[in-house]
C-alpha cells in the first residue's frame, strides 16, 4: 500500500464568527488523485489554501510526509516548495515572460542556475505544447494557455503534491479541455493531486477518490463510480441532480411545429 503523503486531522478554520471548515479530517496517499466537489461556499477552496498555509487554521494538524506543517516552527517556505498550487485565474506574473514566470521561483527559491532552470522549463513547456510561446507575455496568451503555463510553473518546483483550485472555472469550454488534458496526463504519470472542480465528467475520469464537501465538512466520499452512480446521502444526490436535465416533453401545440 502506498504511503500516506498528506494527513489532515480535525482541522477547524473560521473567519471571525463564520466557521468555514469544521473538524475536517482527510488522508491522501502518494500517487492518489483526490477530487473534491461540492456547492460554492462549502469551503473547498479554503481547504486547499489551508494546506499550503495561505490560511491559518485554528485547530487540528496537517502533516506532509509525516512532518507537521501547521506549526509556528515549521518553515512555510520549505513546505510550500513541496506543495504546488494552481489558481482559478492563473495568476501569472504580468511583467514576466512565460519562461521567466516558470524559472523565477526555481532560480530565486531553489537557487538553480539559470541555464538549468530554463532547460527544464522548456522541456515542461514542450510537454504542454507551448514551447513556441516561451517569450510571450501573459497578456498575449489565451486563458487556456495561461493556465497551462501556470501548471508548468507549479511543476517546475518539483512539488510532491499538486493542488488545483477550480482551474477551469474561468475558461471557455474548448480551453477547458486543453487544461484538463494536461491534468489527466499528470494523473497518469502518478502525481499526487488534490483537485477542486465543477467538471463532473472530468472528476469521474481522473479521480481515484471523490470527496463531497458541504458546510465545511466531508459529507460523503468514495470511488467515482460509488459516488456518481450510487450516492448515499440526500445532500449528494441533490447536488448531483443539478448537473443533469430531464428530457422535457413539449406541449402538443408545438409538436412538429418548432418556434
Amino acid at each position: 500500500m502506498a504511503k500516506e503523503l498528506l494527513k489532515i486531522e480535525h482541522i477547524t478554520k473560521s473567519f471571525d464568527e463564520t466557521v468555514i471548515l469544521r473538524d475536517l479530517s482527510l488522508t491522501v496517499k502518494e500517487g492518489e488523485v483526490l477530487v473534491i466537489v461540492g456547492p460554492s461556499g462549502c469551503g473547498k477552496s479554503t481547504f486547499l489554501r489551508c494546506i499550503n498555509g495561505l490560511e491559518t487554521i485554528q485547530e487540528g494538524s496537517i502533516y506532509l510526509d509525516g512532518e507537521k506543517i501547521n506549526d509556528r516552527s515549521a518553515n512555510l517556505e520549505k513546505v510550500r516548495q513541496k506543495i504546488g498550487m494552481v489558481f482559478q485565474n492563473y495568476e501569472l506574473f504580468p511583467h514576466k515572460t512565460v519562461l521567466q514566470n516558470i524559472t523565477m521561483a526555481p532560480m530565486l527559491v531553489q537557487k538553480k542556475p539559470k541555464a538549468e532552470a530554463e532547460k527544464e522549463a522548456l522541456s515542461l513547456l514542450e510537454r504542454v505544447g507551448l514551447s513556441d510561446r516561451k517569450n510571450f507575455y501573459p497578456r498575449q496568451l489565451s486563458g487556456g494557455q495561461k493556465q497551462r503555463v501556470a501548471i508548468v510553473r507549479a511543476l517546475a518546483m518539483h512539488p510532491e503534491i499538486l493542488l488545483f483550485d477550480e482551474v477551469t472555472a474561468a475558461l471557455d469550454p474548448e480551453m477547458v479541455r486543453e487544461v484538463l488534458d494536461v491534468m489527466l496526463d499528470l494523473a497518469k504519470e502518478g502525481r499526487t493531486m488534490i483537485v477542486v472542480t465543477h467538471e463532473m465528467s472530468f472528476a469521474r475520469a481522473v479521480a481515484d477518490r471523490i470527496v463531497f464537501m458541504d458546510g465545511g465538512n466531508i459529507v460523503e466520499e468514495g470511488t467515482p463510480s460509488e459516488f456518481f452512480d450510487n450516492p448515499q446521502t440526500d445532500r449528494a444526490k441533490k447536488f448531483l441532480s443539478t448537473f443533469s436535465f430531464d428530457r422535457i416533453e413539449k406541449k402538443d401545440e408545438y409538436a412538429g411545429n418548432p418556434i
Binding site: 489558481f87 527559491v109 531553489q110 507549479a154
Partner: peptide, 10 residues
C-alpha cells in the same frame, strides 16, 4: 498575485 508568489515558496 503575492499569494501566488508565496505559494511558490518565495
Amino acid at each position: 498575485q503575492t499569494e501566488t508568489a508565496r505559494a511558490l515558496g518565495m
